[in-house]
Design a protein around this nucleic acid. Structure first.
Length: 609
RNA sequence: GCACUCGUAGCUCAGUUGGAUAGAGCGGCCCCCUCCUAAGGGGCAGGCCACUGGUUCGAAUCCAGUCGAGUGCACCA
């Protein structure tokens, strides 16, 4: 059990002894206040049993039994503050591995799900990075995670691109990235004044797509998309194709389940006569129209009904999809795909989630709510509660709505190219010797991609992002390179320490010699597990990104600390023997914290900077 | 019109289940390489946490209302 949990228990026990059983909050004391951790519990106790908070705090200070690692307690007015035993605390942080949350259960995360008709643009970056980071964080918290990428292969968008290529007689010469080439046809078609007359040709392609005849054509685009996503660092387990969702009968299965619900009906009169409708008012209050049409009066299904079927399948409400390997990711792991000619999933390997997270643009909030409500309609209230729409505000480009058709767009590939170019330019300027090394390009890649990923997730998902080169690709301030630089700096200290023959594992450490300034750093390091827990609770990776900044800031402040004479106060290698070993061990622990934290948001640390 | 999201420094944002004097970055001004990497650090200036009321010992945080911004409201996908 970690120190804060022990403190909480100790204070609760003391409170109960005073006749006030309660849930106590343990928080860090503000920087200007005495102590390391504190609690305002005396307010609540005073209220429960009478008396004034300051007196109660005094009483608590007398009676509370201090856990190991706490050296003393002191009442500061109505607050009760605890002082950590520096040597024991730092040693504990250094010697114990992180106690990550041990959450169980399978979580299916759907992200990317880009229409297979043209290349990804900078707006898609946010979706991919959010989803991929969530997957990493949920895995670290103990969940089994399955990442799915939904391929809308029967939609109008794909049909238009395929039609355009054929209509204009375009041929791919292999020089351009395939999805970019495909997108050019799409843009051309939508700028074509004659487009309206081409409708029948587009519809014909849509029918062929539904029949699965053009699967291979769509797969080529999907491969090109995956290339972009791999480059960003995203990884997937399964591609779920819309045609297979329908072809596996999920649409029908889903509707069948809903047929049995008291919330669905087949009106015989009124505006919905002949349709199959679902009344969602019990699950989505305040709607003007509480009925959602699932199947039209002409017998065809609404789009949202497919989403409902897919969602039901993710939760394991039925089976029937077939699967086969599609490709391998850069690490050689197999990415599976749904496929009509695949094998049945006899082991229940895919789907069967306890929780489903759909990473989708906030503009789709309404249909996503209907999908969630449909689980309630089906009587699956627990699954309804664990059906999460990770909604994020869309990305604009220099203040304008991204639109490929209008030419207001920057491709994800171009953004990554530019990021790496800028990173290499910075490297050349700041560290020419390093820029001449063989691995300079790899270093620039990690910095550039890291900068983009970080820019996409450092703020809450509800924040709108206006993509501007200077911000998205910034290399200092609240950015990935700032954190990466700190991580590299930590590694340099360790390397030099090892070269000098000093132990970095705590051997020979004089823990008692550590001053308070080192404690501040150790306290920040120790926070990682609760950061992960918080990120999972909030369903947002920004919590981890913010923590990465905290970690780097804490380290840089410590690294640059000066004593009263203005001399470096924390120089590790110049520290007296014993203190030096303690500090090396702390820096080693910090470096691990950097690695684990950045891995949670898919950011790689360069070898040098 | 109805619903959802949001409103914190000039700009972009953090701020745990309500707790101590609201924090960063960018931009501005001033300092710090005789020191393990200055992609760094320190300092100064900059706040009616949109507004009003309520709940509470205590509100940026919870509730109600007002104002402002964005998004969504088809037998479309």
């Amino acid at each position: 059990m970690d120190l804060k949990a022990q403190l909480k228990q100790a204070v609760e026990t003391a409170a109960a002894a005073l006749g006030a059983p309660l849930d106590v909050a343990i928080q860090e004391t503000p920087a200007t206040k005495p102590g390391d951790y504190g609690t305002p519990a005396a307010f609540q106790i005073a209220k429960a049993i009478g008396g004034n908070p300051a007196q109660v705090a005094q009483q608590l200070a007398q009676t509370v039994v201090l856990p190991q690692g706490i050296s003393r307690v002191e009442a500061a007015g109505p607050f009760l503050n605890f002082f950590v035993d520096v040597a024991a605390f730092v040693r504990g942080v250094v010697e114990q591995p992180f106690e990550m949350p041990a959450l169980g259960g399978k979580v299916v995360i759907e992200h990317t799900s880009v229409n297979p008709n043209k290349e990804l643009h900078v707006g898609h970056l946010r979706n991919v990075v959010l989803g991929d980071s969530m997957a990493r964080i949920f895995r670290a918290a103990g969940h089994t995670v399955e990442v799915q990428n939904y391929i809308d292969d029967t939609g109008r968008q794909a049909a238009e691109s395929l039609f355009a290529a054929a209509h204009y007689g375009l041929t791919w010469d292999g020089t351009q990235k395939y999805d970019h080439w495909m997108g050019e046809g799409y843009v051309r078609l939508n700028a074509d004044p004659a487009k309206a007359e081409l409708e029948s040709g587009i519809t014909a392609i849509m029918h062929r797509l539904e029949a699965g005849e053009l699967r291979g054509e769509v797969e080529k685009i999907v491969h090109a998309h995956l290339q972009t996503c791999f480059r960003l660092g995203a990884r997937y387990d399964l591609l779920a194709w819309e045609s297979d969702v329908v072809g596996s009968g999920f649409l029908g299965h889903g509707l069948n389940i809903l047929e049995g619900s008291p919330y669905t009906s087949h009106p015989t009169e009124g505006k919905f006569a002949g349709a199959f409708v679902m009344d969602v008012s019990a699950f989505m209050p305040n709607l003007e129209e509480s009925n959602v049409v699932l199947r039209r009066s002409d017998g065809t299904a609404m789009y949202v009904a497919k989403d409902v079927g897919y969602q039901f399948w993710k939760f394991g409400l039925f089976e029937g999809m077939k699967f086969k390997p599609f490709t391998t990711d850069p690490e050689g792991n197999t990415i599976w795909t749904s496929a009509p000619d695949g094998q049945p999933d006899t082991e229940g390997r895919f789907g069967h989630a306890q929780e489903v997270i759909n990473v989708i643009d906030s503009r789709q909030e309404h249909p996503q709510k209907i999908v969630k409500a449909s689980l309630g309609v089906a009587g699956e209230t627990e699954k309804e509660a664990r059906s999460i729409h990770l909604s994020y505000a869309f990305v604009t480009l220099e203040g304008q709505t991204i639109s490929g058709r209008k030419g207001v767009t920057v491709s994800a590939d171009a953004a990554m190219d530019e990021a790496q170019t800028r990173a290499l330019a910075a490297l050349t300027e700041l560290n020419p010797a390093l820029a001449a090394r063989d691995d300079a390009a790899e270093i620039a890649r990690r910095i550039g991609i890291g900068a983009i990923r970080f820019a996409m997730l450092k703020a809450e998902p509800t924040r709108k992002i206006d993509f501007r080169w200077e911000q998205a690709l910034a290399l200092n301030g609240d950015t990935a390179p700032y954190v990466q630089y700190a991580a590299v700096r930590a590694a340099n200290i360790l390397r030099k320490g090892a070269e000098a023959g000093y132990a970095t594992d705590g051997t020979g450490a004089a823990w008692d010699a550590l001053p308070d300034i080192d404690l501040a750093l150790a306290k920040t390091v120790a926070k990682l597990p609760e950061v992960v827990a918080q990120s999972v609770r909030a369903h947002s990776p920004h919590v981890v990104a913010q923590y990465a900044l905290d970690l780097a800031t804490a380290f840089n402040a410590w690294y640059n600390a000066k004593d009263k004479q203005g001399k470096p106060a924390t120089n590790v290698l110049a520290s007296p023997e014993g203190l030096r070993e303690a500090r090396l061990a702390l820096v080693a622990r910090l470096r691990v914290a950097f690695e684990e934290t950045l891995a949670l948001i898919g950011i790689e640390i360069p070898a040098a900077m």
